[in-house]
Amino acid sequence: MSTDTPRQLTLRILRSSPGEGIAPHWQDFRVDEAEGMTLFIALNEIRDTLDPSLQFDFVCRAGICGSCGMLIDGRPGLACRSLTRDFGPLITLAPLPVFALIGDLSVDTGSWMRGTAERLETWIHSQAEPDLTAVEARMEPELAEAIYELDRCIECGCCVAGCGTLRMREDFVGAVGLNKIARFRLDPRDERSDEDYYELIGDDSGVFGCMSLLGCHDVCPKGLPLQTQIAFLRRRMVAVGLK
Protein backbone atom coordinates (compact mmCIF):
# COMPACT_ATOMS: atom_id res chain seq x y z
CA MET A 1 0.00 0.00 0.00
CA SER A 2 1.31 3.44 -0.85
CA THR A 3 2.04 5.46 2.27
CA ASP A 4 1.87 8.88 0.60
CA THR A 5 -1.68 9.07 -0.69
CA PRO A 6 -4.18 6.97 1.25
CA ARG A 7 -6.87 5.19 -0.73
CA GLN A 8 -10.31 6.60 -0.54
CA LEU A 9 -12.68 3.84 0.44
CA THR A 10 -16.37 3.67 -0.23
CA LEU A 11 -18.34 1.71 2.32
CA ARG A 12 -21.69 0.80 0.79
CA ILE A 13 -23.92 -0.02 3.74
CA LEU A 14 -27.39 -1.57 3.70
CA ARG A 15 -29.35 0.83 5.90
CA SER A 16 -32.71 0.10 7.49
CA SER A 17 -34.73 0.87 10.58
CA PRO A 18 -37.65 -1.55 10.96
CA GLY A 19 -38.87 0.24 14.11
CA GLU A 20 -39.47 3.40 12.07
CA GLY A 21 -40.62 1.59 8.95
CA ILE A 22 -37.54 2.60 6.98
CA ALA A 23 -37.03 -0.01 4.27
CA PRO A 24 -33.59 -1.34 3.38
CA HIS A 25 -31.59 0.85 1.01
CA TRP A 26 -27.90 1.25 0.16
CA GLN A 27 -25.99 4.27 1.32
CA ASP A 28 -22.39 5.10 0.42
CA PHE A 29 -19.89 6.60 2.88
CA ARG A 30 -16.40 7.73 1.95
CA VAL A 31 -13.44 7.48 4.31
CA ASP A 32 -9.70 7.88 3.87
CA GLU A 33 -7.93 4.62 4.52
CA ALA A 34 -5.36 4.61 7.34
CA GLU A 35 -2.57 2.14 8.02
CA GLY A 36 -3.87 -0.93 9.84
CA MET A 37 -7.49 0.23 9.42
CA THR A 38 -10.12 -2.34 10.30
CA LEU A 39 -13.84 -2.17 9.59
CA PHE A 40 -14.25 -1.43 13.30
CA ILE A 41 -12.17 1.71 12.90
CA ALA A 42 -13.82 2.70 9.59
CA LEU A 43 -17.38 2.26 10.86
CA ASN A 44 -16.68 4.22 14.02
CA GLU A 45 -15.15 6.98 11.97
CA ILE A 46 -18.31 7.13 9.87
CA ARG A 47 -20.47 7.28 12.98
CA ASP A 48 -18.27 9.91 14.66
CA THR A 49 -17.92 12.20 11.66
CA LEU A 50 -20.59 11.46 9.05
CA ASP A 51 -23.71 9.85 10.49
CA PRO A 52 -24.21 9.46 14.24
CA SER A 53 -27.33 7.33 13.69
CA LEU A 54 -25.50 4.40 12.06
CA GLN A 55 -26.17 1.15 13.93
CA PHE A 56 -23.67 -1.69 14.33
CA ASP A 57 -22.49 -3.97 17.14
CA PHE A 58 -18.97 -4.21 18.45
CA VAL A 59 -17.91 -5.32 21.90
CA CYS A 60 -14.36 -6.68 22.26
CA ARG A 61 -13.12 -5.45 18.84
CA ALA A 62 -10.48 -8.22 19.11
CA GLY A 63 -12.13 -11.17 17.35
CA ILE A 64 -13.08 -12.84 20.63
CA CYS A 65 -16.71 -12.01 21.48
CA GLY A 66 -18.50 -12.66 18.17
CA SER A 67 -20.66 -9.50 18.19
CA CYS A 68 -19.73 -8.01 14.85
CA GLY A 69 -20.68 -10.70 12.34
CA MET A 70 -21.90 -9.10 9.10
CA LEU A 71 -21.87 -9.69 5.37
CA ILE A 72 -18.64 -8.19 4.07
CA ASP A 73 -18.74 -8.10 0.27
CA GLY A 74 -21.45 -10.72 0.60
CA ARG A 75 -19.51 -13.11 2.82
CA PRO A 76 -20.20 -13.58 6.55
CA GLY A 77 -17.25 -12.49 8.67
CA LEU A 78 -16.15 -10.57 11.77
CA ALA A 79 -15.89 -6.88 10.95
CA CYS A 80 -13.56 -6.03 13.83
CA ARG A 81 -10.68 -8.06 12.51
CA SER A 82 -11.23 -7.39 8.81
CA LEU A 83 -8.43 -5.13 7.58
CA THR A 84 -9.59 -2.75 4.86
CA ARG A 85 -6.33 -3.33 2.96
CA ASP A 86 -7.54 -6.85 2.20
CA PHE A 87 -10.49 -5.44 0.22
CA GLY A 88 -11.01 -3.32 -2.86
CA PRO A 89 -11.86 0.39 -2.71
CA LEU A 90 -15.59 -0.40 -2.61
CA ILE A 91 -16.66 -2.55 0.34
CA THR A 92 -20.30 -3.56 0.75
CA LEU A 93 -21.64 -4.24 4.23
CA ALA A 94 -24.98 -5.81 5.05
CA PRO A 95 -26.51 -7.32 8.18
CA LEU A 96 -26.39 -11.09 8.67
CA PRO A 97 -29.46 -12.82 7.22
CA VAL A 98 -31.61 -15.31 9.22
CA PHE A 99 -31.43 -13.29 12.46
CA ALA A 100 -34.05 -10.69 13.36
CA LEU A 101 -32.98 -7.28 12.08
CA ILE A 102 -32.58 -4.51 14.63
CA GLY A 103 -31.40 -1.83 12.21
CA ASP A 104 -28.57 -1.16 9.74
CA LEU A 105 -25.81 -3.70 10.51
CA SER A 106 -27.22 -4.77 13.87
CA VAL A 107 -29.09 -8.08 14.20
CA ASP A 108 -30.44 -10.03 17.17
CA THR A 109 -28.17 -13.06 17.45
CA GLY A 110 -28.74 -13.22 21.21
CA SER A 111 -32.34 -14.50 21.14
CA TRP A 112 -31.49 -17.02 18.44
CA MET A 113 -28.52 -18.42 20.37
CA ARG A 114 -30.45 -18.50 23.65
CA GLY A 115 -33.14 -20.48 21.84
CA THR A 116 -30.49 -22.93 20.64
CA ALA A 117 -29.10 -23.31 24.16
CA GLU A 118 -32.54 -24.04 25.58
CA ARG A 119 -33.52 -26.39 22.78
CA LEU A 120 -30.32 -28.44 22.79
CA GLU A 121 -29.73 -28.06 26.53
CA THR A 122 -26.15 -27.01 26.00
CA TRP A 123 -24.94 -27.65 29.52
CA ILE A 124 -23.41 -30.55 31.41
CA HIS A 125 -26.14 -32.97 32.47
CA SER A 126 -24.95 -34.64 35.63
CA GLN A 127 -26.80 -36.09 38.60
CA ALA A 128 -23.86 -35.66 40.94
CA GLU A 129 -23.51 -32.42 42.90
CA PRO A 130 -19.77 -31.64 42.98
CA ASP A 131 -17.93 -31.71 46.30
CA LEU A 132 -16.11 -28.40 45.99
CA THR A 133 -13.51 -29.03 48.67
CA ALA A 134 -12.46 -32.44 47.29
CA VAL A 135 -9.72 -32.94 44.71
CA GLU A 136 -11.30 -32.60 41.27
CA ALA A 137 -12.12 -35.55 39.00
CA ARG A 138 -9.34 -36.39 36.57
CA MET A 139 -9.45 -35.95 32.82
CA GLU A 140 -6.95 -36.99 30.19
CA PRO A 141 -5.03 -33.92 28.95
CA GLU A 142 -5.72 -34.81 25.31
CA LEU A 143 -9.45 -35.09 25.96
CA ALA A 144 -9.57 -31.68 27.65
CA GLU A 145 -7.82 -30.18 24.64
CA ALA A 146 -10.18 -31.93 22.22
CA ILE A 147 -13.20 -30.54 24.10
CA TYR A 148 -11.72 -27.05 24.03
CA GLU A 149 -11.26 -27.36 20.29
CA LEU A 150 -15.08 -27.54 19.96
CA ASP A 151 -15.69 -25.18 22.88
CA ARG A 152 -14.05 -22.31 20.94
CA CYS A 153 -17.29 -21.40 19.14
CA ILE A 154 -18.11 -17.72 19.75
CA GLU A 155 -21.75 -17.85 18.54
CA CYS A 156 -21.08 -15.08 16.03
CA GLY A 157 -23.72 -16.47 13.68
CA CYS A 158 -21.51 -16.57 10.57
CA CYS A 159 -22.23 -20.29 10.06
CA VAL A 160 -25.94 -19.61 10.39
CA ALA A 161 -25.75 -16.84 7.82
CA GLY A 162 -23.74 -19.06 5.47
CA CYS A 163 -26.09 -22.08 5.78
CA GLY A 164 -28.09 -23.30 2.77
CA THR A 165 -30.55 -25.35 4.83
CA LEU A 166 -31.47 -22.39 7.02
CA ARG A 167 -32.70 -20.57 3.90
CA MET A 168 -35.38 -23.25 3.60
CA ARG A 169 -35.92 -24.48 7.13
CA GLU A 170 -36.22 -21.90 9.86
CA ASP A 171 -36.09 -24.60 12.52
CA PHE A 172 -32.72 -26.04 11.47
CA VAL A 173 -30.23 -26.07 14.39
CA GLY A 174 -27.35 -24.98 12.18
CA ALA A 175 -23.69 -25.81 12.48
CA VAL A 176 -23.45 -23.87 15.74
CA GLY A 177 -26.05 -26.22 17.29
CA LEU A 178 -24.55 -29.40 15.86
CA ASN A 179 -21.08 -28.41 17.02
CA LYS A 180 -22.42 -27.92 20.53
CA ILE A 181 -23.91 -31.40 20.55
CA ALA A 182 -20.56 -32.75 19.34
CA ARG A 183 -18.86 -30.84 22.16
CA PHE A 184 -21.09 -32.22 24.94
CA ARG A 185 -21.09 -35.70 23.42
CA LEU A 186 -17.30 -35.72 23.70
CA ASP A 187 -17.41 -34.62 27.33
CA PRO A 188 -17.59 -37.54 29.79
CA ARG A 189 -18.94 -35.19 32.48
CA ASP A 190 -22.19 -35.03 30.50
CA GLU A 191 -24.17 -38.17 31.24
CA ARG A 192 -26.41 -37.98 28.17
CA SER A 193 -26.32 -40.92 25.74
CA ASP A 194 -26.51 -40.99 21.95
CA GLU A 195 -30.19 -41.91 22.37
CA ASP A 196 -30.69 -38.64 24.24
CA TYR A 197 -28.87 -36.69 21.55
CA TYR A 198 -30.94 -38.45 18.88
CA GLU A 199 -34.06 -36.96 20.49
CA LEU A 200 -32.52 -33.52 20.04
CA ILE A 201 -31.00 -33.68 16.57
CA GLY A 202 -32.11 -36.98 14.96
CA ASP A 203 -34.41 -35.43 12.34
CA ASP A 204 -34.50 -32.95 9.45
CA SER A 205 -34.35 -29.95 11.77
CA GLY A 206 -31.19 -31.53 13.19
CA VAL A 207 -28.29 -33.38 11.68
CA PHE A 208 -30.30 -34.96 8.84
CA GLY A 209 -31.34 -31.56 7.53
CA CYS A 210 -27.77 -30.66 6.61
CA MET A 211 -27.28 -30.74 2.83
CA SER A 212 -23.49 -30.80 3.20
CA LEU A 213 -23.03 -27.53 1.33
CA LEU A 214 -20.71 -26.64 4.19
CA GLY A 215 -20.75 -22.88 3.81
CA CYS A 216 -20.55 -23.00 7.60
CA HIS A 217 -17.14 -24.63 7.51
CA ASP A 218 -15.81 -22.13 4.98
CA VAL A 219 -16.88 -19.02 6.88
CA CYS A 220 -16.26 -20.02 10.53
CA PRO A 221 -13.92 -17.29 11.88
CA LYS A 222 -12.57 -19.68 14.49
CA GLY A 223 -11.79 -22.42 11.96
CA LEU A 224 -13.85 -25.00 13.86
CA PRO A 225 -13.81 -28.48 12.27
CA LEU A 226 -17.52 -28.28 11.40
CA GLN A 227 -17.35 -30.53 8.34
CA THR A 228 -15.84 -33.43 10.31
CA GLN A 229 -18.11 -32.95 13.30
CA ILE A 230 -21.33 -32.87 11.27
CA ALA A 231 -20.29 -35.97 9.28
CA PHE A 232 -19.34 -37.79 12.46
CA LEU A 233 -22.56 -36.88 14.26
CA ARG A 234 -24.60 -37.99 11.27
CA ARG A 235 -22.99 -41.44 11.39
CA ARG A 236 -23.56 -41.74 15.13
CA MET A 237 -27.20 -40.65 14.83
CA VAL A 238 -27.80 -43.07 11.93
CA ALA A 239 -26.47 -45.83 14.16
CA VAL A 240 -29.02 -44.91 16.83
CA GLY A 241 -31.81 -44.62 14.25
CA LEU A 242 -31.10 -48.09 12.86
CA LYS A 243 -31.27 -49.77 16.25
Binding site: W123, I124, S126, P130, A134, A137, M139, A144, E145, D187
Partner: peptide, 15 residues
Amino acid sequence: QAVRELAAWGVPWNR
Protein backbone atom coordinates in the same frame (compact mmCIF):
# COMPACT_ATOMS: atom_id res chain seq x y z
CA GLN B 1 -13.74 -24.25 45.02
CA ALA B 2 -14.63 -21.96 42.15
CA VAL B 3 -12.23 -23.67 39.78
CA ARG B 4 -13.50 -27.09 40.80
CA GLU B 5 -17.11 -26.04 40.44
CA LEU B 6 -16.36 -24.78 36.95
CA ALA B 7 -14.69 -28.09 36.15
CA ALA B 8 -17.92 -29.85 37.09
CA TRP B 9 -19.87 -27.38 34.96
CA GLY B 10 -17.83 -28.27 31.90
CA VAL B 11 -14.84 -25.93 31.65
CA PRO B 12 -12.15 -27.92 29.81
CA TRP B 13 -9.28 -26.88 32.09
CA ASN B 14 -5.87 -27.82 30.78
CA ARG B 15 -4.70 -30.94 32.64
